[in-house]
């Protein structure tokens, strides 16, 4: 049976010569622009970005209200009081726990599973958008959402930090008790944005891989949420300590290191390397699947 299949296939191929010229493709830039437009026109993306912009505002108001009551606050939230530059970093760290990964999972769910469900994926494939290029286009869309969501938090965090909390004369008081100037403080915020987007890229790659295997966007969302919960539970069990280095989430507190001075980069580098592994795993599985997927 298979032998026969191969021979008919070979016969079919033998009749046609392999084209010498490369096939024509739509320019990649145009595809990416179309994908960006599609992502940004999606109402839920816009709602999501709005929610993210609200996160630091709500924290700022909470801190401002709590600041009126006597007694020093404790923990990270306490470090925000009167120290506006801390707000974007703390907001990003808090959102990285659940909100940001879910946003990225949602984008990844729409990117492949959602397009399949709408019947639009086959439209792209017969255009044709090459399957590898399709993955690239979709990854770009997910990364765009991750970047925009993180940036929304950072920018609104800076604005709310100054408007509601007030900066310490435009300076950042680090957790270590040192004082950083405006430029250095902005650089720290930018560092956390880049690091956070890196972590989210890992989540996005894994979510895309799941998305490539299903046509129900909710499956992707549920898998990522379930994964986060499972990772959280696993890391809370002392007997499973040895699992920690494998869990993507175990390095997610490293963003706070940007508030220490001198910055210990070890945590961020290690978690970024781990994210890179997850990213490669997700990308590999996604490509492997999408090169064959029926549409």
């Amino acid at each position: 049976m298979t032998a026969m299949t191969e021979s008919t296939r070979a016969a079919a191929l033998a009749r046609t010569t392999v084209p010498t010229a490369a096939p024509r493709h739509a320019p990649m830039g145009r595809l990416l622009a179309a994908e960006a437009r599609w992502v940004l026109r999606r109402p839920r993306t816009l709602v999501m970005l709005g929610v993210f912009a609200l996160v630091p505002v709500l924290i700022a108001i909470g801190v401002a209200v709590a600041d009126d009551t006597p007694g020093p606050g404790s923990g990270l939230i306490g470090a925000i009081a009167g120290n506006g530059f801390v707000l974007p970093i703390v907001s990003m760290t808090m959102a990285l726990g659940l909100l940001l990964p879910l946003a990225v999972a949602m984008a990844a769910a729409d990117a492949i599973a959602g397009e399949t469900a709408h019947g639009t994926l086959r439209g792209l494939l017969v255009a044709p958008v090459g399957r590898l290029r399709l993955v690239g286009m979709k990854a770009f869309g997910v990364l765009l959402v991750a970047t925009l969501a993180t940036t929304a938090i950072a920018v609104m965090g800076l604005l709310a930090g100054f408007a509601v909390i007030g900066g310490a004369d435009g300076q950042l008081i680090t957790l270590s008790g040192t004082t950083l100037g405006l430029g250095e403080a902005l650089a720290r915020v930018a560092l956390v944005v880049v690091w956070t987007v890196g972590q989210l890229a890992a989540v996005g790659a894994v979510a895309l891989a799941i998305s490539a295997y299903t046509e129900h966007p909710l499956v992707v969302l549920a898998s990522v949420l379930g994964g986060l919960i499972v990772f959280g539970v696993l890391s809370a069990i002392p007997a499973l300590d040895w699992l920690q280095p494998y869990l993507l989430t175990s390095g997610w507190t490293a963003g706070v290191d940007a508030l220490r001075d001198p910055t210990p980069y070890g945590g961020m580098i290690e978690s970024s390397l781990r994210a890179l592994c997850y990213l490669g795993l997700g990308a590999g599985v996604t490509v492997h699947r999408m090169l064959r997927r029926d549409a």
Binding site: M1, T5, L13, T16, P19, V126, P128, A295
Partner: peptide, 30 residues
């Protein structure tokens, strides 16, 4: 769907505008 290269045949071969699909679909589909 098999002629357009959207689904791989379990057996047999398909051809579109002289190009075997799905292998050379990129040349035919535009």
């Amino acid at each position: 769907r098999m002629l357009l290269g959207l689904t791989r045949p379990t057996a047999g071969a398909a051809e579109l505008l002289g190009h075997p699909v799905p292998e050379q679909a990129a040349w035919a589909l535009p």
